[in-house]
């Protein structure tokens, strides 16, 4: 009768777990990300592989330029209307099982760019995904 049981009953699409087991699972699976650098967040995505943050700890430092070789797509930055079809196409080319991470507020909800050019909630286009709604302020967030 923990919180996870309540959540599992009322919100069946949400998965709860311990952070440790999630990290261990990620480490075991060694997820390979596809480079999908779009805007500002892409620089921080690159930074994640550099010495300070060391993404290699989780076995996922191998950024693949081809979607065929990738497990997870990190959408880092705002998605414009011209880009959205490309995004969908690259997602479709990835082999199952696949995941999408939407990095930052702009990618998740449009962020400050509530206008004609940016797709506001492209996250609705995908089934399996994980969002981190924050602009790249600090590695601690």
């Amino acid at each position: 009768m923990g919180l996870e049981n309540v959540l599992a009953e009322s919100l069946p699409e949400i998965l709860t777990t311990q952070l440790d087991s999630l990290i261990n699972w990620a480490r075991k699976s060694s997820l390979w990300p596809a480079t999908f650098g779009l805007a500002c967040c892409a620089i921080e995505m690159m930074n994640a592989t550099s010495g300070r943050n060391d993404l290699a700890r989780f076995g996922s430092e191998v950024f693949r330029a081809s979607p065929r070789q990738a497990d997870v797509m990190i959408v880092s930055g705002r998605v414009s209307r011209k880009m959205a079809p490309v995004l969908r196409r690259i997602y479709d080319q990835m082999p199952e099982p696949k995941w999408v991470i939407s990095m930052g507020a702009c990618a998740t909800s449009g962020g400050v760019f509530d206008n004609y050019a940016i797709v506001q909630a492209w996250t609705k286009l995908f089934q399996s995904m994980c969002t981190f709604p924050a602009a790249p302020r600090d590695r601690k967030c």
Partner: peptide
């Protein structure tokens, strides 16, 4: 592909 409409 990254047109953000900033000037607008």
């Amino acid at each position: 592909y990254l047109h953000t409409g900033m000037e607008k």
